[in-house]
Design a protein around this nucleic acid. Structure first.
Length: 439
RNA sequence: GAGACUAUGGUGUAGAGGCAGCACAAUAGGAUGUGGCCCUAUUAGCAGGGGUUCGAUUCCCCUUAGUCUCCCCA
């Protein structure tokens, strides 16, 4: 596909991509919808650094999480500090919240962000080493109503972008009170059957037993079926919390399904965890057409009541979510969801001769100030070439300003569809064009 | 970290062990001031390295990149 035109060492690093002009409209659309929704729910924007102290992520996500173990870009800065490109958004936002004393703002703080994140991985469908996420965080309130609202916002945003067949998978992974007991039971269950586990799970059993629940190896799946169930072991508080979340989701008519094996890979999560999926059905090309049904994760999140304390702060409950922008855009493209171009000229300015060219420069300014999208091909001097450009730009009207017209103080307005032309006095051009475009 | 497939102008493609073609796009023109259709010209390609061969873009190997699966997730 893309052919090497430049030296290999100058080419883009693996897992990165350029967002070319033709794609910008999708990005702009996603950003716009997300911002609009965030504002509609009273969220304020926050931007945190692209890199942070590596420990911030290590402590929050857990040293044995995949993200920290093998996906983080860590580097030593000149001062000797170990820094890391942010692999996700939540720790940075929580850090900013604590560091800037945002708990003194009206509580809870409702924050949103958009930006690039970095994880070292094998690139594949919708997965890059530099990717973009849009995120929401509600910090400072433990009420389950925010769990539901944040989840709902993600669904609303996806729907507004034209995505269909969305589904939330949701689970509760308990809190510091109930999870340890559950974990003990889980370990006991699996230890008795350790011989049947895949090699990854043998490791998980020692390091992070909760993750045993989302292994997809067949033999582990079989064991999972009879493993102790998280939801049966929630303490009263967690149980009630979860029940409330589900009731609120019902009230909002958010489509969801329970998934007792959803645990998510980060240590800071408590209680509610969820992922947003799109059930995508598409036809694979090739000689034998096969209907592929795939579940694509668009985003996810959960409650993280422990994070603040893990980072050495006071006890601050919080709830957050994020979506992957390239995944959303990928689906928008695959489903041919129409997005309006960012700019399309309404009129085209055609200039002829030295004097005409000069006058056009001024006329262009007036048109632009009046909010009329104006195309031009000032570099071309032949009328043919310019009209050809006008045609390709798909404008309704062309304005022709040549030597003769410049002297007479008029502009020729040509209707590109009918081919009819009329000379209009320079002073009236802007107004008349505005009227014509309205029709 | 494990595996599968792919690699021809900017894009999409054809091709054969012996001169690399087509379409689209781009650029310049087409009786000196009028677009679309059309015509002419120009620009531009076998990912990189090695091997087999008289000769390799074609066959073989390696590298790289891309796509995809597992893993994990966004």
């Amino acid at each position: 596909m893309a052919t090497a035109k430049i030296k290999k060492t100058y080419q883009k690093p693996k897992g990165t991509f350029d967002i070319l002009p033709e794609d910008q409209k999708y990005w702009e659309k996603v950003r716009k919808v997300f911002k609009h929704i965030a504002l509609g729910y009273g969220f304020d924007r926050i931007d945190t650094p692209i890199f942070e102290h590596a420990d911030l992520f290590g402590t929050s996500a857990g040293e044995t999480s995949d993200i920290v173990e093998k996906q983080m870009y860590v580097f030593k800065s000149k001062g000797g500090d170990m820094l890391a490109l942010r692999p996700e958004g939540t720790p940075g936002v929580m850090r900013a919240f604590m560091e800037n004393g945002l708990f003194n703002m009206p509580s809870p703080a409702k924050l949103y962000y958009l930006g690039p994140f970095f994880r070292y991985e094998q690139p594949q469908a919708g997965r890059y080493r530099q990717f973009h996420q849009a995120g929401l965080e509600v910090i400072g309130d433990k009420d389950p109503i925010y769990d539901a609202q944040v989840i709902n916002m993600l669904v609303i945003a996806a729907e507004e972008l034209g995505l269909k067949n969305l589904n939330i998978e949701i689970n509760s992974i308990g809190c510091n009170k109930c999870r340890p007991a559950f974990r003990t039971q889980l370990v006991r269950y699996y230890r008795a059957r350790a011989a049947k586990l895949c090699k990854d799970c043998k490791r998980r059993l020692k390091e992070n037993p909760m993750r045993l629940l989302d292994c997809k190896e067949e033999k582990c799946e079989q064991l999972k079926a009879h493993a102790p169930n998280l939801i049966d072991h929630l303490c009263e508080e967690c149980h009630d919390h979860f029940k409330c979340v589900l009731e609120y989701l019902d009230e909002l008519e958010v489509p969801y399904s329970l998934n007792s094996h959803l645990v998510r890979g980060l240590d800071y999560y408590t209680k509610t965890v969820f992922e947003l999926f799109l059930e995508d059905e598409h036809v694979e090309g090739g000689s034998e057409k096969t209907h592929q049904r795939s579940r694509l994760a668009l985003g996810g999140g959960g409650r993280y009541d422990n994070l603040s304390k893990m980072l050495g702060g006071r006890d601050v409950p919080a709830m957050g979510a994020g979506v992957g922008m390239e995944r959303i855009i990928g689906i928008m493209k695959r489903q041919s969801i129409k997005v309006a171009p960012l700019w399309k000229p309404d009129v085209f300015l055609v200039q002829l001769g030295v004097l005409g060219k000069k006058k056009c420069l001024k006329l262009f300014e007036e048109l632009r100030k009046a909010g009329i999208a104006t195309g031009e091909a000032f570099g071309k001097d032949s009328i043919q070439a310019q009209l050809r450009s006008a045609d390709r730009a798909g404008v309704k009207l062309s304005l022709i300003l040549g030597q003769k017209e410049a002297i007479d103080g008029v502009v020729i307005v040509r209707d590109m569809e009918s081919g009819s032309q009329e000379a209009i006095a320079m002073e009236k051009v802007v107004k008349i064009i505005k009227d014509k475009l309205k029709k």
